[in-house]
Design a protein around this nucleic acid. Structure first.
Lengths: 330, 330
DNA sequence: CTGAAAGCGCTTACAG
DNA sequence: CTGAAAGCGCTTACAG
């Protein structure tokens, strides 16, 4: 009653096991009549070749790529979905399989287990920290991976990331051209998360360059937190006329806070938010947006990993994507 | 330069391969001193046991569960995330691993490949059609799976699903108690998708029971389509005072259409939408909502699959969850 | 407490 | 065109 094997088929078809194997893989010519006999035996017995044994014997890879997404929010944002669809598109095109590894923790053990089990050939990592245990482990174990984001020390790493300097530079250029002098930044207060750290640094750099005094207000990921943050900012600094918000979700709340004070956007106040996702489509107001080109970045990350897996040289393994500033429509 | 194997470690430690294997698995006592020698050899060589070989030799399962999510929208909705988090929580608790298989197609071939490769032990299927190729294939091949949703013919299937009859019944009870006589349904027009078909049927049944004449308007998944649908409905049937919308996303647009005509919610118009996700938090208006308890359903589906995999009997393998009607707050 | 050997279900040089 | 045999890297009865 056990699952039939190649040996069973061979017996039934009156050939050797190797012939069955070759008939399956088409790696050498088989006469038409034995091919037919084998075919028939396969169907009669319902052979389903054991892929684990095949992998062991032929030392082949799984052709699966693990996309590692720590679930920071219980909800997945539209931005995360863009990364996912960009990566999975590129992965499928290259005839690999996309596997989403969505875990609530960031433990390296989990990844190691996947790699060792042969489940995946390599990883694409999201939500990269400045010091990232997962990166350390993967590097130590010699497991192929690519980052979307980057660490503090990136020697030897392959990554794609946002050109945050460019993002803030162009935002400041746009805002100052419209006459703004007080440009606040509603930032994510997280000194581990690479993006937050770098964005903060580049905000200060932009302030320097444009001769504007920095105005910071930390802000969480929800609309409510955006509202609270903007209210707190406007209470303390009524002179502010423009703000950059680190995510589009709190932007919704921030906009409400501004409007509740009777200030019109963009006439009385300008707001730029990082990335739009489905959420911006739902708000009655669409702000100016820094489009970080998430899908392109993710597709490139996937291509990098595939190159790594196939021992293709990568000319520029640390790639920054300059984002596009998209002005609001409503 | 190849990866070291158990044989290499055995040679270096001066023991047999089986002793190394037993030292690794702790399946029989090893003397302290040979254990130490083996341990040292393992570390010196950096042994990483080949999990594929182990699986083949010990005929064990992967303990991975595939959560199959056809990407109907490019964006993943908050509702889908609820299913994912509910299922992954239950799966992790049972010491299995959650793998999200997010594909843009619904091809059975893909699933078969995963199952045969030994990558996953079984599947949880989302977006089930009345006639579903994937279900047919999995049944034919004898691969364990559980549905979130159901087919036309469900003999022998294990599933969890929304009690749609209850959902519409309680919505109608609520609306008629408030005096509504004209209750429209903005439905998804899809005669393959089980949920749509059943919801439509139950809407008609509820109309019968409450003596209300059916008023249908088909409606897509985006806010824009919700707006268009509601406008079209109100143009043709200005007498309508209440509507049930099949998803929360178009509800956002539908609400705008209603408000644009100067009608107040809930005073002049009542609206109930199926499920809230992050999106409802963003709209300035929160409608009454049919909470389908997605996380509980998904967790139950996961438990069913684990029971199936571990040959545990399932007393009620076809389970309907009565949803909760949650009234709006703003 | 330890070893020699058979086996898991395939693949693939080596022969003919 | 086909077969006998060794091998992939483990596990696990069988012996001692």
């Amino acid at each position: 009653m056990k699952r039939p094997t190649i040996a069973d088929v061979a017996t039934r078809a009156g050939v050797s096991r190797s012939t069955v194997s070759y008939a399956l893989s088409n790696k050498r010519p088989i006469s038409e009549e034995t091919r037919l006999r084998i075919q028939q035996a396969i169907e009669e017995l319902g052979l389903r070749p054991n892929a684990t044994a095949k992998r062991l014997a032929s030392r082949e890879r799984s052709r699966n790529i693990g996309f590692v997404l720590p679930l920071v929010t219980p909800e997945m944002t539209g931005l995360e979905m863009k990364f996912i669809s960009g990566a999975s598109r590129a992965i499928n095109q290259a005839d690999y399989t996309f596997i989403l590894l969505a875990h609530s923790d960031r433990s390296p053990e989990n990844l190691l287990r996947f790699a060792e089990s042969g489940l995946v050939d390599g990883f694409i990592l999201m939500e990269v920290y400045m010091q990232d245990d997962r990166v350390d482990m993967l590097q130590r174990e010699g497991i192929p991976f690519v980052l979307i984001g980057r660490c503090a020390d990136n020697t030897g790493l392959t990554y794609v990331d946002v050109d945050i300097q460019y993002a803030l530079e162009s935002s400041f250029a746009h805002l100052t051209a419209s006459g703004h002098q007080a440009i606040a930044y509603l930032h994510k207060d997280d000194d581990q998360y690479g993006f937050s750290v770098r964005a903060l640094r580049e905000y200060h750099a932009a302030c320097d360059r444009f001769d504007i005094s920095p105005l910071l207000q930390s802000c969480g990921l929800s609309p409510e937190e955006g509202e609270v943050a903007m209210n707190s900012l406007l209470d303390q600094h009524p002179e502010v006329t423009a703000a950059i918000v680190w995510s589009d979700i709190p932007t919704v709340g921030a906009v409400q806070a501004i409007q509740a004070r009777g200030r019109q956007i963009p006439n009385d106040f300008s707001i730029i938010c990082q990335e739009h996702s489905i959420i911006s489509n739902l708000a009655s107001f669409v702000p100016a947006v820094i489009d970080i080109r998430a899908d392109e970045m993710a597709a490139q990350a996937a291509q990098f990993l595939i190159d790594l897996l196939e021992d293709q040289p990568i000319e520029q393994p640390q790639l920054l994507f300059p984002p596009k500033l998209v002005l609001g429509e409503r």
